[in-house]
Simulated assay, not measured.
Amino acid sequence: MKNTFKLISVAIIVLCVSAFTINKTTLNEGYKIGDVAEDFSLKNVDGKMVSLSDYKDAKGFIITFTCNTCPYAVMYEDRIIALDKKYAAKGYPVIAIMPNNVSVKPDDNLDAMKQRATDKGFTFPYLIDKEQKVYPKFGATKTPHMFILQKTKKGNVVKYIGAIDDNYKDASSVTTKYVEKAVDALLQGKEVEQTETKAIGCSIKA
């Protein structure tokens, strides 16, 4: 009886330690502010492979993990287009990446992405993370999930992570434009004041 009790106690301790380790790992996954983001090579809707290194004249990047099917992502599409139109010429182009598993979300497949990009007139690359290797490195969990990178001598440094603004429902009711404020600060040679916010959207489907 005593041996059985000991075995049960040990099993509980092991489970608790394992759970703590998993939670700790999960919490620490992905880039943090100040990290250097690795380059990637992903297929665009035009069939070409796109990497950050292709943008020789860029000062940085506005990266958004987004998709066709999430209502939050759809509500933000026009604002993402507006960000590219405002900042691409200033050195901060938008790079959109679709991270979902298309076997779980078939309407996010490459053909559907091509159609969406055409219908909306995307002015930026819309890339598919087919092998789902890029979004975990960033630590993206939502669609949309924004990451602003600044090109430096060290590489592309993460300067902002989170939401586009503070009102996903209504663009006209936005009071704080997080991404715009961050990019404006970087363009002025200043530090980003609010470096992280909570991304609001659908969970990425693995």
Rank of each mutant, 00 (worst) to 15 (best):
H145V: 12
M113P: 01
Y55T: 08
Y72A: 07
C70D: 04
A89C: 03
Q150D: 14
I97A: 02
D57T: 13
P125M: 04
A96M: 05
K56R: 13
V94N: 01
M49G: 00
A89R: 11
G91S: 11
V134T: 14
Y160F: 15
K90C: 05
G47Y: 05
N156R: 02
P71E: 08
H145W: 09
E77M: 02
Y135S: 15
A171E: 12
K159E: 15
K142N: 09
Q150T: 11
G60A: 05
T118G: 01
F122T: 11
K154C: 04
Y55P: 04
N109G: 00
Q115M: 11
P125S: 07
G162H: 06
V134N: 13
C70M: 02
G139C: 09
I63C: 04
T152E: 10
A171Q: 09
T152D: 04
K133Q: 14
G47L: 05
R116H: 10
D57L: 03
R116V: 02
D170I: 08
T66D: 07
A163D: 14
K56H: 09
A82Q: 09
G121A: 00
I81H: 05
S53P: 05
G139K: 09
G121F: 03
V50Y: 00
D165F: 10
I62V: 14
I161R: 13
M146H: 11
E77R: 07
V104F: 11
V50S: 00
G60K: 04
S103P: 01
D107L: 13
K48M: 00
N109K: 00
Q132D: 03
I62M: 11
A163C: 06
T66M: 13
D170T: 11
L83P: 01
Y76K: 10
A163P: 00
M49C: 00
N109F: 00
I164L: 14
C70T: 04
D54E: 09
L110M: 11
K154S: 14
D84F: 06
L83K: 08
S53M: 03
T118H: 07
S103G: 03
I97D: 06
F65W: 06
K159N: 14
F147E: 13
Y87H: 12
D107C: 04
N68Y: 09
Q150W: 12
I148E: 10
